[in-house]
Amino acid sequence: MSDEFLTLATLIGIAHSGVRLATPYLYAALGEMFGQRSGVLNLGVEGVMLMGAFTAYYAVYLGGDPWLGVLAALATGALMGLLMAVISVTMQAEQGISGIGLTLFGLGLSSLLLKVLVGAPVSVKGFSVWEIPGLSAIPVIGPIFFDHNVLVYLAYLLAPASIYVLNRTTFGLKIRAVGQNPEAADSLGVRVNAVRYATVILGSSLAGLAGASLSIGLLSIFQENITNGIGFIAVALVYFGSWRPLGVLAGALLFSTINAFQLWMQVLGAPIPSDLAVMLPYILTIVVLAVGVKQIRQPAALTKPYERGE
């Protein structure tokens, strides 16, 4: 039977699953990347995702259009980003700890809101799969990339958009300057903290959207702690991708594809113990982190609050 494992259909299936599974990681990690490039480490991604997932779910639960859910998630993310920015940029609190605080906050509040406003979770009608006409008919490529819900497509468009913003716009230039050498940026008239507010809020909005991509995209339901650690893996993926959008994209795809691979191997009855199979993506991530990450690319001012010298 083992010769059947890697048929074309299976390979397409693995790639298709991997592309879909990477969605929440992409939103969350690309968003987090903006904050880190400007010097702010936000470990609150998990909590923001949970709140975004809940508000999107709740908007749809109340009868709203899924796009309204997307708006709700973005707005919730932005608000939580503002909170994070006030604490870590203005108040200059230790970034790691304030992020963990934000995660606890999001975990608690989203669970509370679920109980108060919804009670027992029920399924909602979120985004359905939308095969892109024409493109989905292409052999191999079509079923892998063009047979998903719209939030999956948007996640992949976000990667080139991030490259453009970071490398081709003034805003991107300011972000890189602020993250690398805030004193120099400041002396050139860049408002360091304003840039950091913008990136943290942008990153959190995307984290909110990451949550929505679960609750009204892939799962069509909200449950307590539905993210189950995705937010923290997203932070790791930023390091994994050496703070570059393409690196983050590659990391998210690799992690998700390995996960899809191990699921398929289990489903097809490959003789691998399940305990070992489920560890594969994590082992691989650690290995790449250990041997592959170029620390030299880490923004020099990461986790360092900026205070103007006189």
Binding site: L218, L263, S274, D275
Partner: peptide, 14 residues
């Protein structure tokens, strides 16, 4: 198949 977790909703869906 096993997901290796009781609460990994996303992986269970996949």
């Amino acid at each position: 198949s096993y997901t290796g977790s009781f609460g990994d909703t996303a992986l269970a869906a996949e």
